[in-house]
Amino acid sequence: MSKWNMIVDAAKCENCGNCYLSTVDEYTGNDHPGVAAEMPLHGHRWIEILKRERGQAPMVDVTYAPVMCNHCDDAPCMEAAENGAIAKRADGIVIIDPVKSKGQRQIVDACPYGAVYWNEEKEIPQAWPFDAHLLDQGWKHPRCVQSCPTGALRAVKVDDAEMARIRREEGLEDFRPDLDTRPRVHYKNLGKYRYEFIGGTVAAARDGIEDCVEGAEVVLKYAGDELARTATDNYGDFRFDGLRAGSGVYAIEVSHPDFPGASAQAELGGSTYVGTIALGS
């Protein structure tokens, strides 16, 4: 049985907003019986782009992660729903019935992802229904995928075994692995979203003129143990990524055959650019 899945590649998302806008376009002013009642023009973010900015100038990066109803196989909203208001279709899509769900605010509260919105006017819970009505009409993918210019969103209809294979092969993960709801939305390249970096620039003076040092060896140590090593690029820049926020004090040791070594320390709250480390002064 093939089922719908969404694959979100955070490295490809540039926050153009089209997934949000195309979804608003699809659901405002339109009733799609059995799938979704009209969505309010403002206030609901059935698809939302989250932003993560790291570092300090000039070493800064920005990562975006679109989030939406996960169409979980163990959906907490379904457990909270009464009167059969939420159903899981054979193709994996979770539908909140726009009629049966009336008045059931607990469905909003039940979603640990915050992906269900309360429609004040209609008194119903609403979430992104994977554009099920369009897929039923033969569309190849939902609106958000169609409007995404970078391929950050990809909808695939495969059986669960095949999806498990894709997950392994492409290194996909859940957005919130801690929640364990078997979501059908899978993420790729979340490293820069989840983790922190320590970076810096290595420079040295020759004849009184300071230059960036390329090829300096930089070692990252934590509690005296070496964690990683790297070499600086032509701008003297180095960066250690994949560190946990608030994980403590790190030592950086820099060496280069032409210059005396140097070191620095950084206490990692969030991502940190330690600035210029000057060799041989």
Binding site: Y20, L21, H42
Partner: peptide
Amino acid sequence: RYSFHTNGDGKDSATNDLMDHRVE
């Protein structure tokens, strides 16, 4: 970014809710 000069902004349009366009 999300509007084209004044086109697309304001007007009670959907762009108003984009996090990097306007803030309510």
